[in-house]
Design a protein around this nucleic acid. Structure first.
Lengths: 160, 160
DNA sequence: TATTGTTATACTCTATAACTATA
DNA sequence: TATAGTTATAGAGTATAACAATA
């Protein structure tokens, strides 16, 4: 039998058992902590991780189709539609329907979009450096290498 | 200037730039993939990661206060209230108000809750092993070790 | 006064399906 | 028929605040 919870044993001393060996569980907890650091760093700014990554990728790939963007960033098309609408309404992104395929929507940054990216780019990179709390540089590099193997399976590996 | 998106270069060949070195971005993509594997494995069953981890921890810590559970699993109290309500309505969890602190709610599994846990425990552990797609055993172990350092900062380390 | 849990609201993101307009 | 994007709906999860009961 499992020992009943003992409040006298100290605050929140809970047995997690094999849960601490669960990759999905660890990923979730790690992400919760890293995102909390992100939101703390960008409190008071309009920067949110999803939107900023979208602006980032449009900047590097001007004219990228909206659906391609959704696949690469693992954002559902229905959600991407609303996300892009917000960015267009904010004046950061321009949509264009190419003559060659009038179903498609190609995205580019406006001047304001580039300015927004430039304004927060350094802070965005800095927070990811600061995020490495408790890890050495070598550990952080190894962690990102291993996460990349999960994040980019062979069929979804980005071009270098 | 950045090269415009070239659809002829192959499907979804998008330049992500420094985003591939962003810990938060990699964590999100890795989690999306790992969770997709989880939901694929448990399609057709009522098993969801959040609820199952709650049942798991209650089983190991019978009588654990609801608030402690929320802190340890990084689930917001308002959400935990609704999550536990679902589990109580499903007959898997019992709530008890201890005489010593009548504000508190202590949680235990019902017989049906233990049966539910037993029924899916092996599959839950197996999916986490299968999740290690593309990683060797050593890499998976190292990844979980590094994630644990992020997930459990010194002030939130679980008892062994 | 502080803490435990609840309720309520709003928002983000996901899942799904139905729909349009093109191809 | 298939594809690109849109709209709509439902749900999970989060953030926040206000609240009641109790300590």
């Amino acid at each position: 039998m499992n020992a009943p919870f003992d409040p006298a044993a100290g605050t929140d001393r809970v047995d997690l058992g094999a849960l601490t060996g669960s990759l999905g569980f660890l990923l979730r907890l790690a992400q919760v902590r890293i995102y909390a650091q992100f939101f703390a760093a960008f409190a008071g700014t309009p920067v949110r991780p999803g939107e900023f990554s979208v602006l980032w990728v449009i900047d590097l790939n001007p004219g990228v189709p909206q659906g391609t963007l959704a696949r690469v960033l693992a954002i559902k098309p229905a959600h991407m539609t609303k996300l892009v609408q917000r960015l267009v309404e904010a004046g950061l992104v321009a949509r264009e329907t190419p003559a060659t395929d009038r179903r498609a929507v190609h995205l580019t940054l406006t001047a304001a979009g580039r300015a927004h990216l430039d304004r927060y780019r350094d802070a965005f990179l800095a927070v990811h450096a600061a995020e490495r709390t408790g890890l050495s540089e070598a550990e952080a590099d190894e962690l990102m290498r291993l996460l990349s193997k999960l994040a980019f399976p062979p069929e979804a590996r980005p071009c270098p």
